[in-house]
């Protein structure tokens, strides 16, 4: 019962802070990318009516990071979105540690399964 009981407010508080910092940091990066993008090509006519898919440079982590470092506004937005996706993943990593500190091996295993599924989803399709 320890994780949800009143004894563990310290862990709960840290998870709460982690989530908040993650969301605010990603929002700031997305906003920064938005400013770069709109200041460079705000008057460009764009259409999202038909699906062609985001360009390859905006689909995979290494390309996104490389383009973002070059100052490509869209890639900076996409990098902020990656940070946002990483926030709940970090929460699961944190839970693995928290359960391990409590020597709750059943829930260490359960959290690891969730983590494995998340990692599969994030890198299993990079080909």
């Amino acid at each position: 019962m320890q994780v949800l009981s009143r004894n563990d407010s310290a862990i709960d508080k840290r998870i709460g802070i982690l989530l908040r910092v993650g969301v605010l940091l990603s929002a700031a990066v997305i906003a920064l990318g938005g400013l770069i993008y709109l200041s460079q090509s705000g008057t460009a006519i764009v259409s999202y009516h038909h699906f062609v898919g985001a360009p390859d440079g905006l689909r995979f982590v290494p390309q996104i990071v490389r383009e973002a470092l070059r100052g490509n506004g869209l890639a900076v937005i996409q990098f902020g979105i990656l940070l946002l996706i990483a926030t709940p993943v970090a929460r699961v990593v944190f839970s693995v540690i928290a359960f391990a500190l409590e020597r709750d091996w059943l829930y260490v295993a359960i959290s690891c399964i969730v983590l494995a599924v998340l990692i599969y989803s994030l890198i299993g399709h990079a080909a």
Partner: peptide, 28 residues
Amino acid sequence: IGVTAAASAGIFLSRGYIQPGLAMPVTL
């Protein structure tokens, strides 16, 4: 919800569903 959404986000990203020009104003 966040963890569940993160699991599909990786696939959405690699399939090109996430257009930053749309996701930016919507998310913010």
